[in-house]
Deep mutational scan, measured.
Amino acid sequence: MAAAAAAGAGPEMVRGQVFDVGPRYTNLSYIGEGAYGMVCSAYDNVNKVRVAIKKISPFEHQTYCQRTLREIKILLRFRHENIIGINDIIRAPTIEQMKDVYIVQDLMETDLYKLLKTQHLSNDHICYFLYQILRGLKYIHSANVLHRDLKPSNLLLNTTCDLKICDFGLARVADPDHDHTGFLTEYVATRWYRAPEIMLNSKGYTKSIDIWSVGCILAEMLSNRPIFPGKHYLDQLNHILGILGSPSQEDLNCIINLKARNYLLSLPHKNKVPWNRLFPNADSKALDLLDKMLTFNPHKRIEVEQALAHPYLEQYYDPSDEPIAEAPFKFDMELDDLPKEKLKELIFEETARFQPGYRS
């Protein structure tokens, strides 16, 4: 834990890192770190609560700039109880001085990944967590956004079992017609939660990839272990087919990539493993919904509104309290091709509203 900075004593240090967030945020305490930044909790002297502050230093890398800009653009436009918001952003007053960006968010005690390492969940908890994931996802999908990296560590939890989806750095506007060349190379989302079509096709992607990830998360809540822990690309596919069985001819016809289709045709026939054999203690309604989410063919996979209306979630289902976005989200430009200098300018502009004396 960093010592509390005395008023006016300059930035606090946390594990050798400068955290320049005073005077409003003090009493910093280390939480963890990701690929390009550290997260601390801090005391907000204005709202009198502890908050989470993520320090991001992305400006050396085009990919990190892209992810940072995506996350900020999306989260500043989203407003939903099951999606983490941005409360404040701290950065230098000029673009030349801006080396880091500090993002202030609600402090959540833990995440689903940490929880599943230590606790076996009751059916009631599984049901409530799944409902909140789908409630947040309904809003995301209504904005025409794909999260693309749903996994237990991106689901934040607090002691009252509130759940918030975080990390929109890989999110995209849904565009089933656009052929994202190089899709697989830039697709760094965790393999275990990846839909089979991501490994088999490169053309376009749809909201059904997020539903697949939610199915993987439900299976993990039922058993405290990942359902498809593939060691590499082909191993991942083999794990999936080992449980779902061989795809039907109709399902194979959806695979545009001939090499991928021929690979699947070359494999020995596998039978589907019954879900109640894998999860003998699970609620039968939970397994019915799991089956509809972990469907090989993305066109037959359940959609988020149908999933919310499934009998497993009937005690929570309330369409009048499951809000959607006001308007579909649009990125003005494809960020993939922009140089990091341009992305830095866009991050600077996007964060201006939090600067003292800002006038829109």
Rank of each mutant, 00 (worst) to 15 (best):
G245K: 03
D288C: 10
S57P: 15
K342W: 00
N262C: 01
C40M: 11
D149K: 04
G357M: 08
S29C: 13
E349P: 03
G34I: 02
R172N: 02
I86G: 00
A35T: 15
A327V: 10
D336N: 13
P280T: 15
L137W: 01
N123T: 00
E96Q: 09
I84P: 01
E81F: 02
A352S: 14
K270H: 10
N201Y: 14
R50N: 12
R148L: 14
A174S: 14
N297F: 11
F348N: 05
P339H: 11
R359M: 15
H120C: 12
V101L: 15
I31V: 03
H120I: 07
E303G: 08
T63K: 14
K99I: 05
H310E: 09
S213Q: 06
T110M: 09
E109L: 07
S202Q: 10
F59M: 13
L343N: 10
G8C: 11
Y193E: 07
I217L: 09
H310N: 13
E12G: 14
K207S: 13
G357Q: 13
H239G: 14
L155E: 06
V101F: 07
E350S: 02
A286S: 13
F228H: 00
M98D: 09
P298Q: 00
E305D: 15
A327M: 08
A42N: 01
P23F: 00
V214L: 11
L76E: 03
L278C: 04
H125P: 01
K48M: 15
T351P: 12
R91W: 06
M98Q: 11
N47Q: 14
S223L: 08
N45H: 12
N238I: 15
P280Y: 05
L338P: 02
V188F: 13
F59E: 07
A219R: 11
K54L: 01
Q66K: 15
A286N: 01
K207Y: 06
S57W: 08
E326A: 13
D179P: 09
Q97E: 10
L155A: 04
I53P: 04
P226D: 00
L289S: 06
I56H: 14
I84L: 10
H178S: 11
K73V: 08
P328Y: 03
F168K: 03
F348W: 05
P328N: 02
I89T: 10
A309D: 12
I243K: 05
F348H: 08
N257P: 08
E326V: 14
L290R: 06
D288V: 13
D44P: 04
D337Y: 14
E60F: 09
Y187V: 05
A282E: 11
E109V: 13
Y193V: 11
S41D: 12
P328A: 11
T159L: 12
T190R: 05
D332A: 11
P11F: 03
R67H: 09
D235E: 14
V188Q: 05
N271T: 10
A282K: 04
N271S: 00
L115H: 01
Y128N: 14
M333T: 01
D20P: 04
Y128P: 02
N297H: 11
L241Y: 09
L121D: 06
L200G: 02
D337S: 05
I133R: 01
E96V: 13
N253L: 10
C40I: 13
L157D: 12
C127A: 08
F183H: 01
F354H: 08
R277E: 13
S153V: 00
V39H: 03
D44H: 15
Q355L: 15
M38Y: 13
F78A: 12
I140Y: 04
I53V: 05
H310V: 03
I86N: 13
G215A: 10
L184A: 08
A195I: 00
Y43I: 06
E341W: 00
N276V: 10
D291H: 05
D210C: 08
D235M: 03
P274D: 07
R191D: 07
S360V: 12
P323A: 04
L258A: 04
P226Q: 11
V273M: 12
T118N: 02
L338Q: 15
Q236F: 09
I217Y: 10
F296K: 02
G10W: 14
K344N: 14
C216P: 09
L287V: 04
K259H: 10
A327G: 02
R359I: 05
A174Y: 11
K259V: 05
D177N: 11
D100C: 12
S122A: 06
Y233L: 09
A307Y: 00
N82C: 05
I56C: 07
